[in-house]
Amino acid sequence: MAQDFETIALNIEDGVATLTLNRPDRLNSFTDAMHAEVRSALELIRAGRADGSVRAMVLTGAGRGFCAGQDLSDRSVSAGDAAPDLGVSVEKNYKPLVMALRALDMPVIAAVNGVAAGAGANLALACDLVFAARSASFIQAFCKLGLIPDTGGTWILPRLLGPARAMGLAMLGDKLPADQAEAWGLIWKCVDDDALMPTVSALAKQMAAGPTVGFAQTKKAIWASSTQDFSTQLDMERDMMRACGQSDDYREGVAAFMEKRTPRFTGR
């Protein structure tokens, strides 16, 4: 299944929705129009999860870049005669975008195929698993413009890297190569360029065929853990374990284990 868009591409196949940012001539930088199309695509993906046709998502970019962040020539943020209110853009576009990704009831995998800069870097880091091509890099470019990391950057970076490395990336704007990002624990894995999409596609299909009820609860619990105390987290684990234990996926997993066969999960 494919859906027609102007600035992105959406393909749904084998239970996997692949959303490709598709403005390669501008390194897939965001405009208001692109944000609107991504929102529409995410609505389709949520609908696919409800009817069972989508059980995992891949986010990637077309051409030689993943996403260069905000397109500074876009009228909504262009620093022309009147100073723009960039807070409006954050509230209208970037906050809903990362919140929607985090709330998706399925695994969300970023395939970073090239430079991920500014909001583009933090968009990738908001996904559940991040794979990057060896030639890719991550740049917190905000400081070059007198800005702060947005799209969740000030929340995600210190939690993944600690305050020292987060502060260095945010205040210096240095390019972080993909292999170093993996070594630091910023991303899950760095792979050779020609292996990126085959690796991510195979994993997404594997996860789409897996126990997606449990995956969805796992991602919610891990994301919540940084803002909850230990006792509250244990209570969340109890409640989520109870919900998972009542799912068709759990019944199928146990039956397959007892019968020594491959489970056939339905995501219910």
Rank of each mutant, 00 (worst) to 15 (best):
M1D: 12
M1I: 06
A2R: 13
T7P: 00
V16W: 07
L19A: 02
P24A: 07
D32Y: 03
A33R: 05
A36N: 07
R39K: 08
L44T: 15
A47T: 12
D51H: 05
A56Y: 04
V58T: 03
L59Q: 02
C67Y: 02
A68R: 05
G69V: 01
D74G: 09
R75M: 08
V77N: 04
D81C: 00
A82V: 14
G87Q: 09
K92C: 06
Y94D: 15
M99Y: 08
L101N: 01
D105A: 10
I109P: 00
I109Q: 07
G114S: 03
G118C: 14
G120I: 02
C127A: 14
L129E: 15
Q140T: 11
L147T: 09
I148L: 15
L157E: 12
R159Q: 14
L161T: 13
P163S: 13
P163D: 15
A170P: 03
A170W: 08
L176K: 07
D179A: 11
D179E: 14
L186N: 06
W188M: 09
V191T: 01
P198D: 09
V200I: 10
L203Q: 13
A208P: 11
A209I: 04
P211R: 01
V213L: 04
G214M: 12
F215M: 13
F215G: 00
A221V: 08
D235A: 13
R238E: 14
M240N: 08
M240V: 01
S247R: 05
D249W: 04
R251Q: 15
A255L: 10
G267S: 06
